[in-house]
Amino acid sequence: MSQSLRIENLHASVDGHEILKGLTLEVPKGQVHAIMGPNGSGKSTLSKVIAGHEDYTVTEGSVFLDDINLLDLEIDERSRAGFFLAFQYPHEIPGVSNANFIRAARQARLPKGQEIDAVAFYREMYAKMDELGMDRKFTARSVNEGFSGGEKKRNEILQMMMLEPKYAILDETDSGLDIDALKIVAQGVNAMRSPERGFLVITHYQRLLDYIVPDVVHVLHDGRIIHTGGKELAYELEEKGYDWIINEPVAA
């Protein structure tokens, strides 16, 4: 049985335009992979397709979470199967408190008829909020409403910590973060790194990878992975840009 998040020959389109054109990569359990790439290369599409966003149509390929093909599952089933997407632009849900939202997500993972132990739930959430430097007031506030960019991203990481996925994609989690917020968010992610969990970190900038050090870096261009290397590749991209890779002949 394969222990990885395995994307195989993934083709996906939106409004008839093909964005992912045969994307293949594998994140084994215990590793952190990064995807970098220029604007429009398909980075955000990849995360939404795996999460199951209905605007995107998968025309070919598969995404395996261990031995489950995620593409066979409903959006919410994918999450409950152990997949997590930290959104680039988390939505605001007016009138729904953050605590109730996370609680509902946890409740959805319990067998029917079993209720969450509220005291233990809050104790755990408070501890994790402390790790992320989040004020307690964020439990009662409406989900993401009026949150700053950094607060929203911290809130994504809090949800990840509370839901303990097997594999997580962080979609440009560093965008809109100042360096202090970035460090805290990275700390949260690093605390969750384990032999039992895999991460795929989508980013524009090498800066994030100083704090969440990847095992492998992939370059995405025009809907395909065109280059794969070690963590030093991120520095090379930062320094030289993408053109030198894009223009090199695709390895057979």
């Binding site: 999450s79 939202f101 993972r109």
Partner: peptide, 25 residues
């Protein structure tokens, strides 16, 4: 709805939570 479902909350429950929030406001 997508955001709530992406956290594992089934669609019907997601609609209910959002409507409840709408009134709670």
């Amino acid at each position: 709805i997508f955001y709530l479902r992406a956290r594992g909350i089934p669609a019907d429950e997601a609609r209910k939570i959002i409507s409840l929030g709408f009134l709670n406001e």
